[in-house]
Design a protein around this nucleic acid. Structure first.
Length: 584
RNA sequence: CGGGGCGUAGCUCAGCUUGGCUAGAGCGCUGCGUUCGGGACGCAGAGGCCGGAGGUUCAAAUCCUCUCGCCCCGACCA
């Protein structure tokens, strides 16, 4: 293709709205333009890159035995009510009412539609296993879109859904997808790590995430030094802390006046205590009128992990409103405590670390008062019908998992594989008749890949001060040919010849035939990140030479113009493949 | 959703505090000329309802109110 005829709007200046390198570079290199918050237009370069990623995904999915379909993005809201995910997804689900007053959802994922089709069309074990996938736009009304295409409201996702007759079958389907994912990310040339993950709104029995490790990632990865255990912070299990030695004759609880002192820090300062000795009392609620109340206790220096808490609570549970807190505790926000609360709530869920405290300080359920010398087990129950002790907090520095110290890093989630079990097949009637004539729900798995995120995270991994340095497999073009002197017919002709021959050999090649100064062409070639660059200039042509350089090379090498095509092929495909192409 | 910030040329921004003259710069764009191997230079030019609506005033990009959009931080620390 000829650069002079294409819209590749590169920019010298860093766009004000972009913070992270991949976002800045995608705009500067003319890959994308923003249309509105969280929605982007892909221009030629960005789209070509996405197409290559999609093609790799498609090939590997097909090879793994999945079949491509296309489900509508516009879906009846009713379908989402059937599985209860209208509630689980909450405001992230894009919903609108059409002219006939019907409620519709824009698909953030497609378990419901796919499962209901399988429910209608599959009735025998002989039709299983089956794996349907698609690659298309998905919609999520994110609280806060950010980082360019890394968290956008509209994005491209590959989603696959497997249906099996039994558990070993599901394991096999899951493993096939897992393996395909490894191949996909390897072929795309991005580094990745696999971590244990929380199933989140999708639900199900187990899941793993594929993460690209980079400091700008939004996800926190928790892992042991040897990598034998790695998990998303949402999931990372921490060992219970050892129970503190009991204090003999611990003093009785005592109410203390703490006027206008609500936060942990302020209380610690005021009472001269430490966050590690505070008990935080968080009130959660579920139900239409927030009538189900879940109280979570964690240490003052710890954070509640809502994903973990949900294992003890019902779907839709979230932090309670002020009304509920005031009703429950009889105090304003900031003064809740566990003493006397167990009888009044649906469940009292206590983190291990709180149960391990010998003595602590907490809210007094009375505005402007705290309670000190509170002994877990004495002053509030650690067991009972509605009292639970468990792991409900985020891992922190110093925690261990099965005795191994945990460390923290960041990553971008680019893929996620789930074992769903029968959650959706039961709701939507995706059952089959087995050999014995018994009706059973299908065992499902689902598998997602964020296509745009692969591109953005590859740029995040691979860039330098001059611009993007994409792996050849996903670069918009494989080779760029710079014709340096438009006023020299022999230069123009030679650049065109090299371009045409490479194109004929099946190489994605871009010819920079613009009537621009050489410096401009060099800068743009670097910025847009084409892996191989061939320079045809008057200077070299005098010797019959051109220059060739990989984007990653520091310096170009001069080669005979006649060897340019073969050399480029070799750099891209390796010697064997290049020879094969040549002999065709 | 809470807090903060920003909307002025295609892009990056100055001007606003303390209202006043023809609203500016750099990049980009157009034309001409000189240049031509790492984002050239000169000359000439085009391009703005100063996000929108209302208000104050003799006078508003500038002050006030409302509104829309965008960005950042937080959103669980009680």
């Amino acid at each position: 293709m000829r650069y002079s005829q294409l819209l590749i709007p590169t920019a010298k200046e860093v766009p004000a709205e972009a913070e992270i390198p991949s976002h800045q570079l995608m705009i500067r290199a003319g890959y994308i333009r923003k249309v509105a918050s969280g929605t982007y237009l892909y221009l030629l370069l960005g789209w070509r890159s996405l197409r290559k990623i999609m093609e790799i995904v498609r090939q590997e999915m097909d090879a793994a035995g999945a079949q491509e379909v296309s489900a509508p993005i516009l879906q009846p809201h009713e379908l989402w009510q059937q599985t209860g995910r209208d509630v689980d997804y909450g405001p992230n689900l894009c919903v609108f009412t059409d002219r006939h007053d019907r409620r519709n959802a824009l698909a953030p994922t497609a378990e419901e539609v796919i499962t209901s089709i399988v429910a209608a069309e599959v009735s025998s074990y002989k039709q299983l296993p089956i794996n349907l996938y698609q690659i298309n736009e998905k919609f999520r009304d994110e609280f806060r879109p950010r980082f360019g295409v890394l968290r956008s409201r509209e994005f491209i996702m590959k989603d696959a859904y497997s249906f099996d007759a039994d558990s070993p079958g599901l394991d096999k389907s899951y493993q096939a997808m897992y393996d395909a994912y490894c191949r996909i990310f390897e072929r795309c040339g991005v580094k990745y790590v696999v971590v244990q993950a929380e199933s989140g709104e999708i639900g199900g029995t187990g899941s793993q995430e594929f993460m690209v490790p980079t400091p700008v990632g939004e996800d926190v990865i928790v892992h042991t030094a040897d990598g034998s255990y790695a998990a998303n912070i949402q999931k990372a299990e921490v060992d219970a802390l050892p129970k503190a030695a009991e204090i003999p004759d611990a003093p009785a609880m005592e109410e203390v006046h703490t006027p206008d002192v609500g936060t942990i820090e302020a209380v610690c300062e005021f009472l001269k205590t430490k966050p590690q000795e505070m008990i935080k009392t968080l009130v959660y609620a579920a139900g239409e009128a927030e009538e189900h109340v879940y109280v979570a206790l964690v240490r003052g220096d710890h954070d509640v992990n809502e994903a973990k808490l949900r294992h003890f609570a019902e779907p839709g549970t979230q932090l309670a409103g002020e009304r509920v807190i005031v009703e429950m505790t009889g105090a304003g926000i900031g003064f809740a405590g566990p003493v006397g609360l167990a009888g009044k709530v649906t469940k009292l869920v206590i983190d291990h670390a709180v149960a391990a405290l010998a003595i602590g300080t907490t809210g007094a359920n009375k505005s402007n008062y705290h309670m000190r010398n509170v002994v877990p087990g004495r002053d509030f129950p650690l067991a009972g019908e509605n009292v639970f002790v468990g792991d409900i907090r985020n891992a922190v520095e110093g925690d261990t998992h099965q005795g191994e110290a945990l460390t923290f890093s960041r990553g971008i989630e680019v893929g996620h594989v789930f074992k769903l079990g029968t959650k959706y097949s039961t709701c939507l009637g995706a059952t089959f008749t087995d050999e014995a004539g018994v009706d059973k729900p299908c065992l499902m798995g689902c598998y997602g890949i964020g296509v745009n995120r692969i591109l953005a995270s590859a740029i995040e991994l691979y860039h330098d001060k001059n611009g993007i340095v994409l792996p050849a497999a996903i670069a918009p073009f494989e080779v760029i040919v710079l014709g340096l002197n438009n006023d020299k017919p022999e230069v123009v002709a030679e650049a065109k010849r090299i371009h045409d021959e490479l194109a004929a050999a099946g190489v994605d090649v871009l010819l920079d035939d613009r009537d621009a100064r050489p410096g401009v062409k060099f800068k743009d070639a670097d910025l847009i990140g084409i892996p191989v660059r061939i320079v045809v200039g008057e200077r070299g042509m005098k010797e019959g030479n051109v220059e060739i350089k990989r984007r990653t090379d520091a310096k170009p090498s001069a080669i005979a113009a006649g060897d340019a095509v073969a050399t480029a092929m070799e750099l891209l495909r390796g010697p064997a493949e290049a020879a094969k192409e040549q002999s065709r």
